[in-house]
Design a protein around this nucleic acid. Structure first.
Lengths: 115, 115
DNA sequence: TCGATTGGTAACCGAATGGTTTCAGACTTG
DNA sequence: CAAGTCTGAAACCATTCGGTTACCAATCGA
């Protein structure tokens, strides 16, 4: 059912996938690590206290969300960050920025008046 | 265990809570609805094809993440949006903006060269 | 060619998640 | 006070999630 998804659904699907991908702390940490440059699967797993297959599953999820690209180099699998899908999150946040800006205005005013 | 969490952990805890809160499509839709103004629990549930208790549970999660405030008005429970916790997501995204900007630069260059 | 690295997959497990139905409580109103 | 409305909580269920161990495929080096 999920296999033969239509082309036109992909945008919304990937957006949902990105939101779910960044929901997990371990996956956010993986993304943070990859900000420092490419790294192999084993190298990434070395940063955590969980088994490599667990990291492998996280990476697969990140890959499906389009956030991580993989390149084979010998037996190693080199992962790199692709932050572009995060634009969807940025766009989504845009609609709420005015709301929290209002809150910030209030906070700023409060701080100025009380200092 | 989770009940007597310390004050100093609250920031990180709430950040994680926010990421998890916005991971669910239904909850994102609830936030979108509340952008239009306050609404009762029943009113929110009316927008969905799931039972009211299900929405109630989503609202509790959103409330714990600090994204929804509740005010009692008679028997009704009026919910309102508080977007401020989303700042944490915005700050998190900041660290990736440069990365997807690079991607956009490449895309833009590609489009300009091929047109 | 053979052993060692590297990493993906399968099978399985406990806990969490999202949903339902049912029930109880608080408040308004006739 | 009694009936009706609005909501939260409890109990339960199916599915998903994050994790593990065990195994297999592929590639590199001696």
């Amino acid at each position: 059912m999920a296999a033969n998804r239509r082309r036109q659904d992909n945008a919304a699907f990937q957006e949902a996938a990105v939101f779910r991908a960044i929901a997990d702390p371990t996956r956010r940490e993986i993304l943070r690590i990859l900000r420092g440059g490419e790294e192999t699967v084993g190298g990434i797993a070395g940063h955590f206290h969980v088994s490599r297959p667990a990291i492998s599953k996280h990476l697969r999820l990140l890959h499906r969300a389009g956030l991580v690209a993989t390149r084979k180099e010998g037996t190693a699998s080199v992962c790199s960050l692709d932050a572009q899908p995060l634009r969807a999150v940025g766009n989504w946040l845009e609609d709420y920025r005015t709301f929290w800006s209002e809150s910030l205005q209030n906070l700023k005013k409060y701080l100025e008046e009380s200092s």
